[in-house]
Computed example of a mutant assay.
Amino acid sequence: MSSASSGTYDTTEFYEGLVRHGLIVPVRVQGAFGRGAVFEDVLERFNALITQISRDDGAELYTFPPVIDRTIIERTDYLDSFPHLAGTVFSFMGKDREAKQLSDRVHAGEPWGDLQGITDVCLNPAACYPVYPVIRGTLPERGRLITMTNWVYRHEPSPEPTRMQSFRVREFVRAGHPDAVVAWRDQWLERGLGLLKELGLPARSDVASDPFFGRKGRMLAEGQRAQKLKFEVLVPVISEENPTAVCSFNYHHDHFGRVFEIHTPANEAAHTACLGFGLERCVMALFRHHGFVPADWPAAVRARLWP
């Protein structure tokens, strides 16, 4: 039985319980860990439930690598809003002399990053980002709906288990007319809440904002909240007072439509919305509230995940 079952939350105890039961595998770096077989089984079954719920929506299925074209984060102003989260990819581009310098510095325990150069790719910071360049052009009258499960990277090293540097998101992206896009987002907010509650989790939704950087970022966050552009589904995993966001539902207006030249049949910039289930966080919420051994979970929860 997890500590949350008795109404208490202890971050260290929860992390150690995940490790002790082989659910996660520690590595040296904070915010990164391996996943054991049981953890992966629950994650895949939860993701399959999302597929089941959305089976009649007609979403196109895509698969993308964990790296994207670096110009995407440059064109979308990601580096203006979230420079602290970005992960760019550097590689060695020198010749023999520079290679010798690199080796010498590494073996001497000295800094060597300046001997590498930036590449054309970066780690994907948002699960929806690879989609927008792909759907450039004129949309069908009913718009487009795309789904994928993407690895996401954010530079947030932390010993707290739900604060990961690398994690998976089951994502949906809707592009089209404003009314249809907003209605779709709101429909999925109810779907997400319903799914988590069916699995015995004390989920609730709330208006939210992204972790914008700096003083300007605080103003952006206030505007985002005021316009209700972002909602999150929250579940107590680490604390009751500061519940963990396990799902996010976002409306972008025509921002990506303008940047990536995505148009409606009327030649207007398309509006977009996205929603994402943080798969690792959803799974951790299940372990937090039902215990570390799935065989002991409530029958109704097991019936949904292991039909």
Rank of each mutant, 00 (worst) to 15 (best):
P140M: 09
R144N: 05
A37G: 10
R288G: 03
V25F: 08
D57H: 14
E171D: 13
L199E: 00
F46K: 07
D296M: 14
V207Q: 00
N267D: 15
K216A: 14
V293K: 13
Y62H: 09
E16N: 10
I73R: 11
L229M: 04
P66H: 15
V131Y: 10
Y62D: 12
Q116C: 14
A295H: 08
Y78M: 06
E16F: 01
V121P: 12
L305P: 15
T63Q: 13
I68F: 13
K216T: 08
Y129V: 09
F14L: 11
G194D: 05
H21F: 02
V235Y: 07
M148Q: 13
L49S: 09
P161Y: 00
S103V: 10
G176Y: 07
E160D: 04
I68Q: 12
A4R: 06
D210F: 06
V29Y: 07
R281W: 01
T88V: 13
S239Y: 04
T8N: 06
A86G: 08
A108T: 08
K228P: 03
G137H: 02
A303Y: 08
F64Y: 12
A270Q: 00
T272P: 05
G217P: 01
P243K: 03
E98K: 10
A183I: 06
C274G: 02
P66L: 05
Y62I: 09
E190S: 14
A126H: 02
R144M: 13
P133F: 06
M284V: 01
C122P: 08
G137L: 01
P294D: 12
V38H: 04
V25R: 11
N267F: 08
G223S: 11
K216M: 11
A99P: 06
G87Y: 10
L234C: 02
L49V: 09
W151G: 13
C128R: 13
P307N: 10
Y129C: 10
V38I: 13
A221T: 05
D69F: 09
R70G: 09
